[in-house]
Amino acid sequence: MNYEFDFSFLGEYGQDLWDGTLLTLWMTAVSIIPGFVVGTACAVGRLYGPPWVRKAATVYVEAIRNTPLVIQVFWLFFGLAVLSVRIDAFYAAVIALVINVGAYTAEIMRAGFESIPKGQIEAASCLALSRWQSLLYVQLPQAVERVYPALVSQFILMMLATSIMSQISAPELTGVAYQIQAFTFRGFEVYLVIAVIYLAVVTLLRAILTGLGKVIFPRRRRLGTPL
């Protein structure tokens, strides 16, 4: 095998790679909070809601968790196109990511809520907190604290999953790479470079989220911690 590696495309397309990286990060950032809200709402609905809410939330979670993200994105993006709803690939990607990560977050948060000792909820009601107050001020912070590492992993997986959005022509990092290799015919080198970029982004994202967790939850109680 005598293959000459040629990374000279980096000079010409460096700016495009940078833009792609930023779009990947931006897509992840705007999906995290809505995804968390959807997931938490589902978890609460499944645990404390009336029967029809429980059923609906269960159907949502099972349907999303047992089908691939790619199919969900195609369904949404090409489906909207047929309904002649014009939507930017970026927004279609974000909507699909929120719906997808919401279902996974729902399962994580459910484990978090279930792990809170009963005494905490009893104490909240002894302090005359309403059910919503108890949920919002007592249960939610503790649940998030306990499952925080799992949430971080889930959001990192979501960041990696944004790479499939090139399939609906969103110009994130993988999409940019595809264009560069089409112009330069240096597919192997291009994908090696973006693999390194993804590794760097994962490391950065994990450091930021873990650091944030240490600031917000100084006690660092995990699943299985008694109080």
Binding site: Y3, L160, S163, S166, T174, G187, F188, T203
Partner: peptide, 23 residues
């Protein structure tokens, strides 16, 4: 860490192009 830090589509591309440059 390496495999878990790279998106699967990118791994697919790297293997695909890697095999083809290997001839």
């Amino acid at each position: 860490q390496l495999v878990q830090g790279i998106p699967l589509p990118v791994i697919m591309f790297v293997v695909y192009f890697g095999l083809s440059i290997g001839g």
